[in-house]
Design a protein around this nucleic acid. Sequence first.
DNA 1: GTCAATCTATCTATTGATAGGTAACGTTAA
DNA 2: TTAACGTTACCTATCAATAGATAGATTGAC
Lengths: 175, 175
Amino acid sequence: MSTTVEKLLDQAESEIRQRGYHAVSFRDLAASLGIKSASVHYYFRQKEDLGIALVKRYGEQFFSILDEKAEELDNPLQAVIDVYRNALTSSDRICLCGMLGAEGCGIPKTLSDEVAAFFQANIDWIAETLPKTVSVAERKRRAEHSVATLQGAMMLATSLNDHKVFDRAANSLLE
Amino acid sequence: MSTTVEKLLDQAESEIRQRGYHAVSFRDLAASLGIKSASVHYYFRQKEDLGIALVKRYGEQFFSILDEKAEELDNPLQAVIDVYRNALTSSDRICLCGMLGAEGCGIPKTLSDEVAAFFQANIDWIAETLPKTVSVAERKRRAEHSVATLQGAMMLATSLNDHKVFDRAANSLLE
DNA sequence: GTCAATCTATCTATTGATAGGTAACGTTAA
DNA sequence: TTAACGTTACCTATCAATAGATAGATTGAC
């Protein structure tokens, strides 16, 4: 049995990943849990606080699963693809940071900073796993390309309502 | 001197590409032009109508510029990259359809359908320019990969506040 | 006089946010 | 032992701001 905070975070993540930050209200969230919007403010003083908690939790979960997956598989890039694919197919939603990253300066700055940190960590993680025989600049370039493709592929697959679009675009990274 | 409708479309496109559909209001738009929100409703009965007009115009302009660019250059994929790059660097904003595509089911269905059509046309355009020696399925895969990468790269570059991220990720497509 | 383009005024719904109340429960101290 | 207190987790009620939308008046060009 999860706590109210966890349920709130789960619900908020689900709704924001589906419709965006501005399309989700405290009242919606509260109603989904059968409580009142004032109770959501009890846990998160401002909407911004909820957003930040959400991105932090998302990042922790993401890298935790990624590290685990990378140990199982011998190909780190395949691990990244698997984690992204699972994020998409298990819920038919794009990445939380993909959504918030798109909304750019429409969301509080503290929140977009947190989102940027997620992307940077994602790029660094991938760059670190590439062969050391490749230059630092080239590793960075390839890592950026991978993250860009995966994020774009999630959005594209969701818009075109076809997860296979993600698979095809993502698998192109493995060549 | 552009008409009020054109100014409205310009302003709406600029604001939506920067902050998202839900973060833009008729009052904001009207105020930017020095008119009242009721006058915006005179041109676009509902917000949804404005959105659809916006995506249609965006698509027309996009493919018009793309065709032009493709005639100048001998490499069609380079033309696509150039058009995307210019969309990003000239205004520091992501693609209109990238934003609306992310917002997914948070926007009216008629609008998301229009966005999906843009993406499909974009994929088809690229697939068509790839060598006929390559199978149809493979051309489709490569085209999807290109669009995914370019869309993701715009978002990533905007979030990380560094246009070079776009250039590096996009140039990876030319290999 | 007609009509396009704008206005004023207003409606209802929703938003994020706050103040203050209450019921349940554990802790503490006489 | 039990009365008092504090904390947690909600609640009701309400606010000011903003949203999309509409009705109907006005203005000015042709």
